[in-house]
Design a protein around this nucleic acid. Structure first.
Lengths: 227, 227
DNA sequence: TGGGGCATTATGTCTAGACATATTAGCGAG
DNA sequence: CTCGCTAATATGTCTAGACATAATGCCCCA
């Protein structure tokens, strides 16, 4: 009847009800195990989960205390554009606008830690939902990782090729707002200067950078996260 | 020498090295336990962690398989503005621009599921770092949850009051880009139409909405997430 | 042939006990 | 008084075994 999820729920209730206010040290695992009539390992499972979620802070010897700043963690399920669009019952397609080897801007080489005089593969793609532009993708690829000959990215999306082929070990992700300009404005059919949401992502294979991706969303797009 | 974290690392290595490609069913816990020379519970701990991180999908009876779409989950540590600013060694302050009871726009009542003719408490705040505007906060508060008399939000930030006082059980969070206008443009000293990043957040206490918050960031701001 | 029920199977969870490890508080020496 | 060692302590992890639960797929019966 009392599983670790019940215990997690009960502890969370006490935190929210301010029975155990922020900063307070809560009873030890042994004591809670006795109170709930379970083994210590079961209490440990529950408290560990709450600590991972950011509700508790645990330290050996000093014990477990309620976090001062409750729920400060949110998770984002990064959508695969094709799935996201098809899940809405719309037809997915993409069009490769441009791809060539060229010298990246300094901001790109700096972020990736590459030599500034090294040309990289530049890919520009538009993702379509029912024929309407849904997102604009600009990608810089480290050419050192590409096979010879280069895959045909007009048939297979670069994203899917990467996912299938390369092992990646780390990455980061940022959101920012940017004014539409040039080709992006043209793609979405908005006037230059319109506010667009950009997701920027870099991925690494060990200490080698794989790619830098800038995904510009259509006007009005919201990226939803779960708390 | 072989703890559950080592096992997690080794399994992750095999996934990334394509020893176990996406979609593949990997050996059962019993087999892995034997291979690594540990108890099944230890393997379970490692695989459970990888499943939570999105690398594996586990189902009773059918077993554990490598996820088709690797790493599709990112976490955001929602910053408390004051801490974020002070961590950069800058002085934090905020100024309450406006607060009054007024009828919210339909979009707000719809999102919160409240009656459209019910006035709500409106708070408009600017957060400052070293005196410079860092973020603009617009907040609608459910007046049913406020004590009488209403707390003095010019002395205590609404956010901190809420965190200290109300239990919240759920919430969601979205990012979008928006053109600067009116007071927001004025606060940041940008021309109307400039692209700004907005974080929108609603919080609930059970089925009662607590607040809807729109945090507009200063021009050029990036919200960084960890993958 | 089709469908319902049952055996099988892999994961999910729990227990009791043990040892490991980080961290703190206190003690003692210089 | 301060530094460094030590003992105490709460969490972290592991084990071996057990039972629970969700799916699957097979067998049997209609």
């Amino acid at each position: 009847m009392t599983g670790w999820e019940d215990i997690r729920a009960e502890v969370l209730r006490r935190i929210r009800a301010r029975d155990w206010p922020p900063g307070q040290v809560i009873p030890g695992e042994e004591a809670l195990a006795q109170e709930f009539g379970v083994a210590r390992a079961t209490v440990n499972r529950a408290l560990t989960a709450l600590a991972e979620a950011g509700f508790l802070e645990r330290r050996r010897k000093s014990g477990t205390r309620v976090a001062e700043t409750p729920v400060r963690r949110a998770t984002l399920d990064i959508p695969i554009l094709r799935h996201e669009i098809e899940a809405q019952g719309r037809a997915y397609a993409f069009r490769l606008l441009d791809h060539r080897l060229m010298l990246p801007p300094l901001a790109v080489t700096t972020r990736l830690g590459l030599a500034p005089d090294q040309p990289m593969l530049w890919l520009e793609t538009v993702h379509l939902a029912d024929g309407h532009p849904h997102a604009h993708e600009a990608r810089w690829l480290n050419p050192a990782l590409l096979p010879d000959p280069c895959p045909d990215f007009s048939a297979l999306s670069a994203n899917e090729w990467l996912v299938r082929t390369l092992a990646f070990t780390a990455g980061d992700l940022a959101f920012l707002a940017e004014a539409a300009e040039g080709r992006v404005a043209e793609v979405f059919g908005v006037t230059a200067g319109a506010a667009l949401l950009v997701m920027e992502r870099t991925t690494w294979s060990g200490d080698q950078p794989i790619t830098l991706l800038r995904l510009t969303h259509a006007p009005g797009h919201r990226v939803q996260m779960m708390v």
